[in-house]
Computed example of a mutant assay.
Amino acid sequence: MGRATPTGDGGDDGLKTSWPELVGFEMLNAADRINIDRPDVFPAFYMLPTPLPTDYNPTRVILVGDDRSVVVRTPVIG
């Protein structure tokens, strides 16, 4: 548990920074998966059409969902 998997898309530390495989998942299930991969970050939930934050937070993973709470964009750190 908590094993980091390289994604090739960020940082020299090899820690995962995006989760494209979670598009289509229910938001809470996606958050659980992210917490397994990266227990050092926290999920932040946003529903369309809510504006997304413009600041960068290296401990936040942005999850964007539709009216059914299904992830519609790749969750990313930021």
Rank of each mutant, 00 (worst) to 15 (best):
M1E: 09
M1F: 10
M1A: 15
G2K: 03
G2Q: 00
G2W: 01
R3T: 15
A4R: 07
P6C: 10
G8Y: 05
D9K: 13
D9A: 15
D9V: 14
G11R: 08
D12W: 08
D12Q: 09
D12M: 10
D12E: 12
D13P: 10
G14N: 09
K16M: 14
K16E: 07
T17N: 10
S18H: 11
P20G: 06
L22T: 07
L22F: 15
V23P: 01
G24K: 09
G24R: 05
G24I: 11
F25L: 12
F25E: 12
F25K: 09
E26G: 14
E26W: 08
E26H: 13
M27G: 11
M27Y: 05
M27F: 07
L28T: 12
L28N: 11
L28I: 12
L28G: 02
N29K: 13
A30R: 03
A30G: 12
A31L: 06
A31D: 03
D32M: 13
D32V: 11
D32R: 14
D32L: 14
R33M: 13
R33P: 01
R33Y: 12
I34C: 01
D37K: 02
R38W: 02
D40A: 14
V41D: 02
F42G: 08
F42Q: 11
F42M: 11
F42I: 13
P43L: 08
A44V: 14
F45S: 08
M47V: 15
M47I: 13
L48A: 13
P49A: 04
T50C: 03
T50F: 04
P51S: 05
L52K: 00
L52T: 00
P53D: 01
P53C: 02
P53G: 02
T54F: 05
D55W: 04
D55G: 10
Y56T: 10
Y56K: 07
N57Q: 08
N57C: 10
R60S: 08
V61C: 05
V61H: 02
V61M: 03
V61K: 00
I62G: 01
L63P: 03
L63G: 06
V64R: 01
V64M: 03
G65D: 03
D66G: 00
D66Y: 02
D66W: 00
S69Q: 09
V70S: 03
V70H: 00
V70Q: 05
V71C: 04
T74R: 05
T74F: 00
T74S: 03
V76G: 02
V76Y: 02
V76T: 11
V76H: 03
G78I: 03
